[in-house]
Design a protein around this nucleic acid. Structure first.
Lengths: 204, 204
DNA sequence: CAGCATACTGAACGCCGTTCATTTTGACAA
DNA sequence: TTGTCAAAATGAACGGCGTTCAGTATGCTG
């Protein structure tokens, strides 16, 4: 009588294989190089079968990104649990955010640089998917800055504005370095560290 | 005997019309929504005709962006000629950079967020097109920061690193605000101003 | 074994960028 | 005027794409 369970397992398994094939393509060249037909080839199913598991290409890739951005949140959580001072926690988090982006360029660019029109017919639940995840992570930043303010290590007029500025800054460092547009950047680690130093110095 | 000149003028005219049609499409929805076939429809020529005037779609759009980024450079030049103090010049320039990006979202995103693979078979001259322009503008930033350092309004270890950090920051503000990902930002002008304030405070 | 829901497929639609053999155009010399 | 010839423009085709849907296969249940 476990047939229902087995069928469910088989469905899950194929879903997993679709995600796996899509991820491989996504990692290679980003969103544009993911193609339903190429995925179908790799898993040896017809292209239309994929639509039984995902509404469309955007939802498929979004669901890959959701998983990856969960990892970011776990990493930030881990840093928070290190028991460092608020300011040191903030510093480490911001640097790790940038590293996360650099480690997952396709994911990062898809989530933050894809024109909103692409997402237009995503169901509300699916839209909240990645966006909700990003919001959770941003909230850590908000809380982190608040903690720094409360222990006096920084002084800002408005926590929300400061948090948004801080995100815009690390976002800039990330996107700027992720897209290799041939610009002759100075050594990367040094550039990141000194950017974060300046960012924190600016929070006053 | 001015037939050659007239023919050249006619070629230029069609080239201009292609750029015009392409620009209209580009402004509406960005790079992906520009299509050779739609351009052809609008100018009432066959799609293949466009290829007599532009190597491919990337070169066509790049050439649109080159024009627009020249405007940025002129704007920065104009600010420089205002005769303000170095620090005030820097401030105004950084803010204007962000405004430029927000005024030309498609151009900005195409130039700085398109995966390099897309540009891979662009001729060296054409690659330098926009990239060279961006370099010229970046050089203004470098020079501006140097001027501030020399008059003592800021203090940095290394001008190059500081300039790159500064660019990454304004780049982040620009891309973050250009892509409307539904994030509940605080009032835009205030956010930009206070971000730039922090940026400059961080240059010390 | 029949019925039936579930899973899957193949063909098609309408897009896309790009290429190239072919045709059209129009200025010039005879 | 007519014939020639380069330049300009074209239409059809290639191979790709995301997506839909009528129809087929599969395999469990009664």
């Amino acid at each position: 009588m476990g047939t229902a369970e087995r069928r469910a397992r088989e469905k899950d398994e194929l879903r997993r294989r679709i995600l796996e094939a899509a991820t491989a393509l996504f990692l290679e060249q980003g969103y544009e190089s993911v193609s339903m037909r190429k995925i179908a080839d790799r898993i040896e199913y017809a292209p239309s079968t994929i639509y039984l598991y995902f509404k469309d290409k955007v939802e498929l890739v979004s669901s890959i990104c959701f998983e990856t951005f969960s990892e970011l949140d776990r990493r930030l959580e881990a840093i928070r649990n290190l028991g460092l001072t608020p300011i040191e926690t903030l510093r480490r988090s911001l640097i790790d955010y940038i590293h996360f982006g650099l480690e997952h360029p396709s994911h990062y660019m898809f989530v933050f640089c894809t024109p909103p029109a692409v997402f237009k017919d995503m169901g509300q639940d699916q839209r909240c998917d990645v966006n909700g995840m990003a919001m959770t992570s941003f909230n850590r930043l908000r809380v982190g800055i608040k903690a720094c303010m409360e222990d006096g290590s920084i002084r800002v007029d408005d926590v929300e504005t400061a948090a948004q500025s801080a995100w815009l800054f690390v976002h800039g460092v990330t996107t700027g370095l992720v897209v290799d547009c041939g610009f002759p950047f100075v050594e990367r680690t040094m550039l990141i560290e000194s950017s974060i130093d300046r960012l924190i110095r600016g929070l006053n």
